[in-house]
Design a protein around this nucleic acid. Structure first.
Length: 788
DNA sequence: GTTCTAGAAC
DNA sequence: GTTCTAGAAC
């Protein structure tokens, strides 16, 4: 990606620069070589002169039709409807159309952009940004103007119109915007369009814009469903995924009051009444919220890594579809710089087939580093198609993002990770000092590394698309999961704040997040596991025989041990038999629970009762890590727990809380979680009480980490609630959870290995994901103090 | 659960 | 050469 092409060029390249590509795509994108050219300018800005020069001076054979509202009614002023019809007719005849009317406000030009979109035609804007005094001077002094706007009246009209001018944006649906600031610019633009042959196309982007000051734009368009009621000319399947088109947008609330009685001579304006303003204002409250729930991402691996576009689009649509099903209130925007982007068109088609909600997933043509200032899109989180070293450079999106974000992104990235493996991502909170943060409102950059099909780049997959697609799928899943974590964290804060307010006013407790997600792996995964129980492999059978044989460990000393090792657990759903075997090494907790008196002198035992034993974990995975071990024989793990065990579980939980509080008194900086391993390694039901620093030499591998930070770890409060409701718990035995990538339990950033992860968690100060902040899943000193 | 260690990754 | 992971043994 050339970041410059998205916006700052002052002199556009000649049409020949892309004419070859235009011809190449002609057949597959029928009609795309046609153009709807919308002029934007007040009276006196030179629209008519421009239009006549283009329509009458075409040297390259492109057929043009000028649609001029001032003359469309048999030489007299007509209506917008007439203009739309004339434009539509001309486009259907294969001609390009030049819309010669003021079009200063978005609403005025929206239908023309929509028309172009409906007929799959590029829509360009020429913004005639000449100084107001020049326009006024010309308008006042001209004679015989087609719209009969001249003299003193013209000065008044031009002045008022300019006050309400809204600069055209790419998000309105324009693929290309040229701003002409003087007659020289106008001449260049005329020459450009005169030289445009029938099959030529022009590069997308904004050209010649002088003002760097962002135009006030609204996000309301983003919240409102597409208006499909007008221009019903589309045939074929309903387009479910669309680029943002102005037809989807609403007029922006004006900063200045609109004079309701004012009417432009060329077009009757619609004033905004109070009701509309209030509605828009109410939606504006959601403005920040929408931005913080929107992820803008480039296509991964399809540029420099040369991944097949068709396969990539399948992966994008599939992963996005599944992700959006899992989460409410999240939006994904696939961004590409080029209007001719094949990946965008493929994704659009495929998403349409899947009927993905276009308000929640759409494509956008523009520069991912200028979404707000150039496109009016607020996206707090953007993804970067990173390289494995997480370093700047290399061109494309990576270079553009590092350039736009400044050095602070490098520093922030280095704090999070040193490298990425294909198929993973890492979340980097963007410092508020970064220009990208300040200018565009980007708070996080998620670096993603996809599979590589380029022999000149690392980790070349040699066209192995089975592996490549899998890795690309992992990459997008990782990206989306990372994004969800950020949103969760954000929404958790929101909920907590609103909850705190409610509590203060004696109201109800904080609401749960709107998100469907239960934890970092999602509810869907858990549901699947409800229906799947492992059946013993021959190897396990062998192990079982070994354990049960005469030479088995002395731990299996009680007769009850034997049936428990091959216990058959009824599964109410499908009657699949579940068996769990315990190796000799896994029996130590069981032995302790059955014979605590043998260990009464051990320093590790903190407390003993008839029901449970509190033990310091022999290999603590954090500063504080203890176990509350049930003493009930036959209760090996969560899979054995039934309703009748609820009192025991509640007392074990209370014991755990009591000890956590004791530790919090000693060290207020700690936080604790209480929970069970979904499928424990050690026999005998035991509750972990583990501080969330995870600062321990005994935490050595991925399995250790994931067993405490993924859905493998079942919070005690959830276990109790589930048993209260269902009479049993759902336990997952999916080893894939334990083999998943390493993610920070706070900010959910991914890390390549345990040492890097440990370095990160030692400094990560992010708040915990919101679900942990609910239902007392996380015990902290502040809660502890509250309870006193 | 840990320890050991081959070999992959760096 | 060193670091790190993952599988086997216990």
């Amino acid at each position: 990606m050339d970041p410059d092409a998205g916006g700052s060029s002052s002199s556009p390249p000649p049409p020949s620069a892309t004419s070859g590509a235009g011809a190449e795509t002609k057949e597959e994108e029928r009609g795309s070589q046609q153009v709807v050219l919308v002029l934007v300018g007040p009276p006196g800005s030179g629209k008519s002169t421009f239009a006549e020069a283009v329509v009458g001076g075409s040297t390259a054979g492109r057929p043009w039709v000028r649609v001029c509202q001032d003359t469309i009614g048999n030489g007299k002023a007509g209506t917008k409807i007439q203009c739309l019809k004339a434009a539509s007719d001309a486009l259907k005849e294969g001609k390009s159309v030049l819309i010669d009317r003021c079009n200063l406000e978005r609403e005025q030009r929206a239908d023309f952009v929509k028309l172009g979109g409906t007929l799959h035609t590029d829509v360009h804007a020429i913004s005639l940004d000449l100084p107001a005094k020049v326009c006024i001077s010309r308008a006042v002094s001209r004679k015989g103007h087609e719209g009969n706007l001249q003299g003193g009246k013209a000065a008044l009209v031009v002045n008022r119109m300019l006050q309400k001018k809204e600069t055209p944006l790419l998000t309105e649906g324009f693929s290309r915007i040229m701003c002409c600031n003087d007659d020289g610019d106008i001449k260049k633009a005329v020459d450009l369009y005169n030289g445009l042959g029938p099959s030529d196309s022009l590069p997308s982007g904004v050209f010649g814009q002088k003002s760097k000051k962002p135009v006030q734009v609204g996000i309301m368009k983003f919240l409102k469903k597409a208006d499909t009621s007008s221009v019903e000319t589309s045939s074929g399947p309903k387009l479910a995924l669309t680029e943002i088109k102005p037809a989807q947008q609403n007029p922006l609330p004006k900063q200045e009051n609109v004079e309701a009685g004012f009417a432009c001579p060329m077009e009757v304006e619609k004033g905004l009444n109070d009701k509309m303003e209030n509605e828009e204002h109410a939606k504006e409250i959601d403005y920040c919220d929408v931005g913080s729930r929107t992820l803008a991402f480039p296509s991964i691996s399809t540029a420099d890594f040369q991944f097949d576009l068709d396969r990539a689009s399948d992966v994008i649509v599939d992963t996005a579809f599944k992700f959006l099903q899992k989460f409410d209130n999240i939006r994904l925007v696939l961004v590409d710089l080029s209007e001719k982007s094949r990946i965008l068109s493929l994704v659009k088609q495929k998403a349409a087939k899947k009927s993905i909600d276009s308000n929640r997933f759409f494509t956008y043509v523009g520069d991912i580093t200028q979404l707000h200032t150039k496109g009016g899109l607020q996206c707090s989180v953007i993804a970067n198609a990173a390289n494995w070293r997480l370093k700047p450079g290399g061109g494309g999106v990576n270079a553009a993002i590092y350039n736009a974000a400044g050095e602070s992104l490098q520093h922030a990235t280095k704090k999070c990770a040193d490298a990425l493996r294909p198929g993973t991502s890492v979340v980097v909170p963007l410092p508020s000092t970064s220009p990208l943060h300040q200018r565009e409102g980007v708070t996080h950059v998620i670096h993603v590394l996809g599979p590589n099909m380029n022999p000149m780049r690392p980790d070349y997959l040699k066209n192995d698309y089975t592996r490549g697609s899998k890795i690309l799928c992992e990459a997008y899943n990782s990206l989306f999961e990372s994004f969800a974590s950020i949103v969760q964290s954000y929404m958790g804060k929101q909920n907590n704040e609103s909850g705190a307010e409610k509590s203060a006013s004696g109201g109800t407790s904080p609401n749960d997040t709107k998100m469907k997600r239960e934890d970092s792996h999602g509810s869907e995964r858990m549901k699947k596991h409800k229906l799947f129980q492992p059946i013993m492999t021959s190897k396990q059978q062998h192990e079982c025989t070994k354990v049960n044989g005469p030479k088995c460990h002395a731990d299996a000393m009680t007769s009850s041990a034997v049936p428990s090792q091959t216990r058959q657990v009824d599964n109410k759903r499908n009657d699949v038999v579940t068996r769990k075997t315990w190796g000799s090494w896994a029996q130590s907790l069981y032995e302790l629970a059955m014979n605590p008196e043998k260990y009464k002198n051990s320093d590790s035992i903190l407390e003993t009762s008839d029901e449970y034993i509190v033990l310091k974990d022999l290999y603590p995975k954090a500063k504080r890590h203890i176990l509350v071990i049930s003493r009930m024989d036959g209760l090996d793990s969560l899979a054995d727990v039934k309703k009748e065990h609820l009192p025991l579980l509640r007392r074990m939980h209370s014991a755990g809380v009591k000890w956590a509080q004791k530790f919090l008194e000693e060290d207020a900086a700690l936080e604790f979680r209480l929970g069970y391993h979904s499928v424990p390694s050690m026999r005998q039901l035991h509750l972990h009480i583990v501080s969330q620093d995870f600062n321990s030499a005994s935490l050595k591998n991925k399995k250790h980490w994931n067993s405490f930070t993924t859905s493998f770890f079942r919070d005690s409060v959830d276990v109790i609630e589930e048993i209260e409701q269902n009479g049993s718990t759902t336990t997952s035995s999916d080893e894939k959870i334990l083999a998943m990538e390493l993610r920070c339990h706070r900010c959910r950033s991914a890390h390549p290995n345990i040492p890097k992860l440990k370095s990160h968690i030692a400094i990560c100060k992010s708040s915990f994901p919101s679900h942990l902040l609910q239902k007392n899943r996380l015990l902290s000193s502040t809660m502890h103090m509250d309870r006193k």
